[in-house]
Simulated assay, not measured.
Amino acid sequence: MCGRIFVRPEAKTQNLLHELNLDHFTLPDTPNVAPTEAIPVVHYWEDQLTISPMRWWLVPSWSDGPSTKFAMFNARIETIASSRAYKGPLKYRRGIVPVSGFVEWKREADKKQPYYFEGQNQPLALAAIWETWRDELLSVSILTQPANDNFSRYHNRMPVMLSVDRITQWLDHSISVEEELAAVLGASVELSARAVGTQINNARVKEWV
């Protein structure tokens, strides 16, 4: 899963933009971003790599409009290719979400304890797919996958996290969907984790942990 993200124009994330030749962009300073709020997405638009704010909850192009009836802020890598809502974006509209960190919750005794995760030695680039609805709204889902051995102590699912070389491949739409999914399944980076205060459970609390 991936339920909250934190974005900051810090050195690691700005270096990621430098690697992608996007130095002219500065990321927003947005802590504790929840689904349905706007997050920055790196993607191609008219053959140019750019960054756009998108609604973090994908709105299918054929739908009646934004809704939270179905949980579409995350997309399971195991079923994404067969989903009516996701298979078009997966083929034609892949992107990444550059983040400073994200929060996941672990059940401990009688409560869920939030943990903040960040990359130890590199920025976090979360694989994503995006969609446009009636040329009015851009929206995005973050890919998730089964947790690896290190992450499974916290949760049974984790985001798909890409290194710079895999970012380039993920954004290359000339590569088939089957090749792309096989290449990124299991993709992760070394993470550090620390317990944070439960005030972060409230999405209206916009503060850094």
Rank of each mutant, 00 (worst) to 15 (best):
Y154Q: 07
M161V: 15
R134L: 07
H155C: 10
S163K: 14
P159K: 00
R157G: 01
P146A: 11
Y154V: 12
E190I: 10
R157H: 11
G186D: 08
R194Q: 12
E180G: 09
N148A: 11
S188Y: 04
W170E: 05
S163M: 05
E179V: 05
I175W: 04
W130E: 04
L143I: 10
A183R: 13
Y154G: 08
A147S: 14
Q145M: 05
N148H: 13
D149K: 12
M161C: 13
P159Y: 02
G186L: 02
S188V: 05
L162C: 02
D149T: 13
W133T: 04
H173P: 03
L162A: 01
E190R: 06
D172S: 11
R166M: 13
N148D: 15
S163Y: 04
D165R: 11
L191V: 02
L143N: 01
T132C: 08
S174Q: 12
S141T: 07
S163I: 13
G186V: 00
D149V: 15
E179F: 08
A187D: 09
V184W: 08
S188R: 09
G197I: 04
I167A: 01
Q169W: 11
R194E: 12
V189P: 04
S163F: 09
T144Q: 05
A195V: 08
L143C: 03
S139W: 00
M158K: 06
V164H: 11
D172W: 11
G197F: 00
R157V: 12
N148S: 13
W130G: 00
V196C: 05
T144K: 07
A195P: 00
L181W: 06
P146K: 02
P159E: 02
L137I: 08
P159S: 03
D149W: 01
S176T: 15
I142P: 01
A147I: 09
L143K: 09
I167Q: 06
N148C: 10
A195C: 09
S192F: 00
S139Q: 01
T168M: 13
S163W: 04
L181P: 05
S192I: 05
V184Y: 05
N156M: 15
H155G: 06
W130S: 06
Y154N: 05
M158I: 12
G197P: 00
A187S: 15
V196L: 03
Q145Y: 09
D135M: 03
D149Q: 13
I167F: 00
G186A: 09
W133C: 03
R166K: 14
R194T: 03
V160S: 06
T144D: 00
V189D: 00
L191P: 00
N156C: 11
L162T: 06
E179A: 10
V160H: 07
N148Q: 10
S174N: 13
A182C: 10
R134Y: 08
T168Y: 09
R194S: 12
E131L: 03
L137Q: 02
D135L: 02
R194C: 10
I175K: 12
R166Y: 11
E136G: 04
S163V: 14
I167S: 01
S163P: 04
W170R: 03
Y154H: 14
S192W: 01
T144V: 13
T168Q: 12
L162S: 00
A183D: 10
N156H: 15
N156G: 12
R157N: 09
L191W: 00
V177E: 10
Q169F: 13
S141C: 09
E131D: 15
Y154K: 11
S188G: 10
V140P: 03
N150E: 14
E131V: 06
S176V: 12
V196M: 01
